[in-house]
Design a protein around this nucleic acid. Structure first.
Lengths: 281, 281
DNA sequence: ATATTAATGTAATTAAATTACAAAAACGAA
DNA sequence: TTCGTTTTTGTAATTTAATTACATTAATAT
């Protein structure tokens, strides 16, 4: 169980004093794992039994169980660090920092995903007559990758770098068609224009983007990767990696939602490509 | 502190009964974090104070501290799992498995990278007159992404999906030009053909691919991501994610190798794109 | 063989967590 | 608004878990 997320999700379920405990937990979870019921009760200005009640309310057996699970969750999150690249870093250091930072971003995305939105996305894609993928700049290759993944299924999947072809694709999307737009910030003007064209055409618009962004206004569902992007000049956009892994999950969910017929399709594609490769030694 | 390792390292420091406790801990560390001194003492056939003595002997404050640190360590280790997707998995489970598996692959790549090969790669790219990127299937979007990243610098960077344009680019690469080929297995025939065209033309060929593969024969340097690819039908190719992060590291190394002038270039590009986005709210 | 040190467990003690119960607060219905 | 019911809350009591004290036993060194 992700304790911090559960606490956040259940704030509205809590009583007045349990809420005070929750606030203390969210304030400094790292410190909490080391303190007694007596200490936490004092900090939160509640009685000791309220601590126990809070723990049971969110699904733990008691306070020791709560502390243990919190510690485990925090330890998972702490495996990955976010670093800056310095001008005098050597190649090994740079490489290590970039990998660690990417791992950190991915772990964070994993923790914060909106699963209901993903399910809704899969549901739309499953019933789509045609799917068009759009992305600009760093997100262009994500859109390209998504098209490549969906090309293994029979639902038509479209991607183009050509801005006119993109507009045609958006204008040509009707009810029953799906448009998928990738943008970390959701502030790219050209992409918002595409999304609006599709939206106004009654196509279903899926945004892999930031909630509340200009792009999100033209989306029927938004899935956000919640990557805090580093503005360091050398640091790459980890969000595009997170978007790609998210698409991997969506593709797998799409395949599962279709059931047995998909396996045969995938097997057919794989077999058909066999001759384009040298055999393994 | 890595509890399990510390226990193993200090077995020879332990008394006869403390050794019995250690054995029980190493037998099933996952279970230990949930049991009381009384229970563990019974399992190890020692007294309760011996449990406490064991904990203090290995450097913990007492048994709760020992359990907490053990739990944290186990949670860190548990981040790196590789899973199969089952037909009855729900979307949350699928998503979690794919993220975890990707994290595992990335962490593995991070640990096994050949830093000398990366340095050599950066050196070739730094001096390149022109860079062409090639990839097929899952690696196509990686090549696309790489071109996009290098497009921010002044060295000409080329990518195309069009197989004829690709051949032209390879035939048109001369000494001083660099060809970068992406392929996890290095067994894609079309890609090997491209690499050979460039190699025979005296262009420098960089392979982000498997060592000893057919493609590697036509490469001046090979950087491998060492991702054991799962043959599960639903599991995505994590290697392309690893390749992308690797390119991130190479791009950062390239930028650092160029020094101060690059910052101005990057700043110029960023400023020039500002108007293509809506301002942040 | 004897003295010293270390290990050990029983019993006692302390600390931490949980339960019981009565009072107070909050909520809903008339 | 009042009253009855339910929920929340904290004090006190109780239980559980962990630690300490002390005497005995075992191991080691002279």
């Amino acid at each position: 169980m992700n304790i911090v997320q559960t606490v956040k999700d259940r704030l509205s379920d809590l009583s007045k004093n349990e809420y005070k405990v929750a606030q203390q937990v969210l304030l400094d979870p790292e410190a909490i794992i080391h303190v007694s019921t007596a200490t936490l009760a004092k900090q939160a200005n509640v009685s000791e039994p309220t601590i126990n009640r809070f723990c049971r309310r969110i699904g733990c057996k008691g306070y020791p169980d709560f502390k243990l699970q919190l510690a485990q969750q925090l330890a998972k999150g702490a495996s990955y660090v976010n670093s800056q690249i310095d001008d005098d870093d050597n190649v090994s250091t740079v490489t290590d920092k970039i990998f660690s930072s990417t791992l950190s971003a991915l772990a964070n995305t994993q923790r914060t995903l909106d699963h209901a939105a993903i399910e809704k996305t899969i549901s739309y894609l499953k019933d789509a007559r045609k799917i068009s993928f759009f992305g600009f700049g760093a997100s262009a290759s994500v859109a390209h990758d998504a098209q490549n993944k969906f090309a293994r299924f029979t639902t038509p999947a479209i991607f183009s770098d050509d801005v006119l072809v993109q507009k045609v694709a958006a204008l040509n999307s009707l009810p029953g068609d799906v448009i998928v737009c990738f943008s970390h910030t959701g502030r790219t003007k050209a992409l918002c224009e595409i999304a609006q064209l599709g939206y106004d055409n009654q196509a279903t618009v899926i945004g892999i983007t930031a909630k509340g962004s200009p792009l999100a206004k033209y989306c029927h569902v938004v899935v956000s990767t919640e990557v805090p992007e580093d503005t360091d000049q050398y640091m790459p956009m980890a969000s595009r990696i997170a978007q790609m892994v998210l698409i991997d999950a969506i593709v797998a969910g799409f395949a599962l939602a279709h059931g047995e017929e998909i396996k045969q399709q995938l097997a057919r594609v794989k077999a058909g490509l066999k001759d384009s490769r040298f055999p393994p030694q």
